[in-house]
Measured scan of single mutants.
Amino acid sequence: HEITLHINGRRVKLRFRDEKAAEILKEAAKKGLDEEELKKLAEELWR
């Protein structure tokens, strides 16, 4: 699955395995994680 989040006016595509991962990524984006941090988090969730 993929999700596209808008971060600092940019579109960031993240891959994720399940809905739980999608929710975690959305929450992290709301908390203000930047693009690099979100990509790292997405990679961690993928494993």
Score class of each variant (00 low, 15 high):
K13W: 04
R15A: 06
E27H: 08
L14C: 04
A42R: 01
A28P: 00
E35L: 12
R10N: 09
F16T: 13
A21H: 15
L41D: 00
K40T: 12
I7L: 08
N8I: 02
V12N: 00
K20T: 09
A21N: 06
R17L: 08
A22M: 13
E43L: 10
R11M: 14
L14A: 01
L33R: 07
L41I: 07
A29C: 05
L14V: 08
A22N: 04
A21D: 15
D34W: 06
K26I: 14
E35A: 11
R11F: 15
A21V: 05
A22G: 13
W46I: 03
I7K: 02
K31D: 11
H1D: 10
V12G: 00
L33Q: 09
D34F: 07
D18R: 02
R11Y: 15
L5I: 12
R15D: 01
G9T: 02
E19V: 10
L25A: 03
K30S: 14
I7D: 01
K39D: 04
E43W: 05
E35K: 05
N8F: 05
R11L: 15
L38D: 00
F16V: 15
T4W: 10
L14R: 00
K40Q: 14
E43I: 08
A28E: 06
E23T: 13
E23C: 06
E44R: 09
N8K: 09
R10W: 03
E36Y: 13
G9L: 02
I3P: 00
L14I: 07
E27Y: 07
A28R: 04
W46P: 01
L25Y: 03
E37M: 12
A29Y: 13
T4R: 04
E19F: 12
E23A: 13
G32Q: 05
E19I: 09
L45E: 01
E19R: 11
E36M: 12
K40A: 13
W46H: 02
F16A: 15
I3L: 15
R15K: 13
K31R: 14
R11A: 15
H1C: 10
K39Q: 11
H1F: 15
A42G: 05
H1S: 10
A28H: 07
L14M: 04
L14P: 00
A21L: 03
R10F: 08
E2F: 15
R17E: 03
E19N: 10
R47W: 13
K39R: 14
L38E: 00
A28W: 08
R15I: 06
K31W: 10
